[in-house]
Design a protein around this nucleic acid. Structure first.
Lengths: 151, 151
DNA sequence: GCCAATAGGTCTAGATATGAGACCATATCG
DNA sequence: CGATATGGTCTCATATCTAGACCTATTGGC
């Protein structure tokens, strides 16, 4: 874990830097304390609210191959409770990332599928996961080192 | 929000699909109930635990321009409590994404900076944010539509 | 000399989110 | 007649987060 010298970015591309710079001051800094009314309208916060939802990304990934029914989705994700699955799906549906279709079987079955917006979201998500699988070894090593020192 | 026909992906590139396919069955499916001991070792879960930490990404972005001290970081992020800032920074440090350096001023000041691993993480994160800012309008529209129908 | 301020935290209490699992409706199968 | 399947909802116990008081040590102002 070498420390970068400020102003000497080795890894981040100029383009990526540009994107980040746009977000950096998007919230915070310069508000009177308590006047944060517009944090909710900030796109970054908005995504992070969805991404930071622990289950949402997992659900999107589970739907990436094919549409799935509620119970299949629960099996696929593995350790999500019905409660949270329902709740997360509702949010994803509300945000237009996932569609919900009820089939009038008895008992009725419900199929969830990605919308085109949901498919589009998976592109950057795939990038993230791809990075993750590559970095996982390094992260595990860093953790081991940290734990050895600081308990 | 058009619904995609299964097997007819318009948006997701073959490469991205490949990545996702690798993760899709990574957990769940096929375990006896309660035998999910290895979910913790799964790279996807690992990233999502960090990404899903609401604050971690925000902190990484706040550090993307330059190293910052604790209190500067708190101002930059805007609405994070000291408690969560400390906690998130510890995790990021443990995972090797952020470095922590104490300067022996009085009172001592502490500077946090991205490691090279942290810089690398920002590449896919920037991709995500970039997508987010483009999709934000669509998401807001979808929300409005949903709320109009389903209250 | 004394009091306030500063930096970076920690600790505690009250609010909020989550997880496990019981419960529901309804029709079909044995 | 009773068990089963599907997609939820509801309740309660637990985990996590927020707000904010408090702590350490030193320095600057008066």
């Amino acid at each position: 874990m070498t420390r970068e010298h400020p102003g000497n970015p080795v890894v981040l591309t100029p383009a990526a830097r540009e994107v980040l710079r746009g977000f950096s001051r998007n919230s915070a800094a310069g508000f009177a304390p308590g006047a944060d009314a517009n944090l909710g309208a900030c796109p970054v916060r908005d995504v992070l609210a969805r991404v930071g939802d622990k289950w949402s990304l997992l659900i999107l990934v589970a739907l990436s191959e094919q549409p799935r029914r509620f119970s299949a989705l629960q099996r696929e994700v593995g350790d999500i409770s019905k409660r949270m699955l329902t709740q997360s799906l509702r949010m994803l549906e509300r945000d237009g990332l996932v569609s919900r279709q009820v089939f009038p079987t008895k008992p009725p079955s419900v199929e969830y599928a990605l919308t085109s917006l949901g498919e589009a979201a998976l592109v950057p998500v795939a990038g993230l996961l791809h990075w993750a699988s590559g970095a996982h070894e390094q992260i595990r090593a860093a953790r081991a080192a940290y734990d050895a020192l600081e308990g």
